[in-house]
Design a protein around this nucleic acid. Structure first.
Lengths: 195, 195
DNA sequence: TTGCCAAGAGAACGTACGTTCACTAAAGTA
DNA sequence: TACTTTAGTGAACGTACGTTCTCTTGGCAA
């Protein structure tokens, strides 16, 4: 086993711990986690993991998991014979998806999609739109606008100097709001569940 | 504003911090986060949030986010214009994305989608497929099959007594595997992130 | 006005924290 | 064999940590 592989063993335990506690443990707990008898061994290991891109220092100097920390190799699974699948998936530790989709929890809403006006953008009825509350949006963003006291999900476009709402379905008309266009937020993600 | 709503304001800041740092801050940082001048104020606030089910103590006595901490507001219905829609307002439900999508964490993978062979099913390149590892699937399920040592995302169909893999894009051919069809898992969800 | 309650301020305390440095043991290399 | 490297040990140190206690302030009810 190479040094690199050994460190991955340690990393795996750290990932499991994080999945449980949602926080990186202190050095003292890391010692018993890893089976070390000294804190400096932990320190060196963490530094190695940082060099490999699994950990980072926060702006306050604390250890913080980096992006690679949440990745998982599919090959670690009992994959059928002869599978050299080296693809990485994003890992399914609890709360991975939340962290992936949501940057500002306090400003983020989930809004169920109704209708098929955005079907060509791959947004189906029943999907959940992840919407970040924000009054301004960029051209081309998919926005949640408020039209006739209802939420409407459309692409923000411009037509002759005025903002318009573009459906992604030729069967629907372009919405040309008179007066100001009220934007509730910007769609930053999509969640769909089958069955 | 009630005491409860004020605490939710504090909670929102804590959630945003956690989204950035992936860890709860120390009392000292909480003080500046909340605008308190004393640590005991922080202590009392955290205790209140614990009573409301947003925080917990880990087995080691550290503060840890609880399930409610990760819930998002799910707007149920068309919301009237001019709604302030504060965090956890009336008419909104609490909701956690991970729990919504993932039933069996240890058997669930997130696999990046490549190509546009399923575009008519609203599955785009770059999306994340939520895949539950399982060897058997039902007709009509979207499955991850292993063809030529590569993952393939297709709808499971049947043609003359034999299983086939149906793309959702007329530009792609139906895959008719000779011999057995190797199924990696069943797609149970989809996650997409914009920008 | 008085009394009560809760939120927050402020200080004191003991300890558990992360860092650092010198050292050891094992493995690789000439 | 002797030299180098590297993972881990062990101890010492200063500080930042979370807890706890008392005190102040503002809001509210009687």
């Amino acid at each position: 086993m190479s040094e690199f592989e050994r460190d991955l063993e340690y990393l795996a335990r750290l990932q499991d711990y994080y999945a449980d506690e949602r926080c990186l443990p202190s050095y003292a707990r890391l010692m018993s986690l890893f089976g070390f008898a000294s804190k400096s061994a932990v320190s060196k290991l963490l530094t190695r993991l940082q060099l490999q891109g699994f950990l980072n220092r926060s702006s306050d100097g604390d250890w913080v998991p980096a992006d690679r920390f949440f990745e998982r190799t599919l090959s670690s699974e009992p994959v059928p014979a002869g599978m050299p699948v080296a693809a990485r998936d994003v890992g399914t530790d609890a709360f991975a998806i939340d962290q992936y989709l949501i940057n500002r929890p306090s400003h983020t809403h989930l809004i169920p999609v109704k209708g098929d006006s955005m079907i060509d953008a791959g947004i189906h009825s029943g999907d959940l739109a992840v919407v970040e509350r924000r009054a301004i949006a960029n051209l081309g963003d998919i926005v949640v606008a408020i039209v006739d006291d209802e939420f409407t999900l459309k692409t923000l476009g411009k037509e002759g100097g005025k903002f318009v709402l573009l459906p992604a379905n030729p069967a629907y008309p372009v919405i040309r709001p008179q007066g100001t266009l009220e934007i509730f937020g910007v769609m930053v993600g999509l969640v769909r569940k089958y069955r």
